[in-house]
């Protein structure tokens, strides 16, 4: 399989993730769609790494995974805090960051 195929699959996954972020309203599902986009990026990175036969792309992918984990921790923390304060868990109704 040529590297092109992997990149096309990565582009498709990225597109699906972007569409999900735009369509869905539940912040939990939006976070899941962000994961999709990050993973699409990871697939492209690994594909390029394979293309050059060089481990740098894999290191990059691992760092992306770390960043995704941080994003999940903070994002879910915010959602739990919203739930605690009895705010609606719906991005259309959450129009203000402040208080």
């Amino acid at each position: 399989m040529t590297v092109n195929w992997y990149l096309i699959v990565s582009a498709m996954i990225f597109t699906l993730g972007a569409a999900g972020v735009l369509i869905r309203r539940n912040p939990l599902v939006i976070l899941l769609c962000l994961e999709l986009m990050l993973n699409a990026g990871n697939l492209a990175l690994i594909g390029f790494s394979r293309m050059w036969g060089n481990g740098a792309g894999e290191i990059f992918a691992i760092v992306v995974m770390v960043i995704a984990a941080c994003e999940v921790a903070i994002g879910l923390g915010i959602i739990v805090a919203l739930y605690r304060r009895r705010l609606p868990v719906d991005v259309d109704q959450l129009k203000e960051l402040h208080g």
Binding site: M1, T2, V3, N4, L7, R50, M51, W52, G53
Partner: peptide, 11 residues
């Protein structure tokens, strides 16, 4: 990037 059309470098 012409190498995209190949299976990648020799590993």
């Amino acid at each position: 990037l012409s190498a995209l059309g190949t299976d990648g470098a020799k590993l």
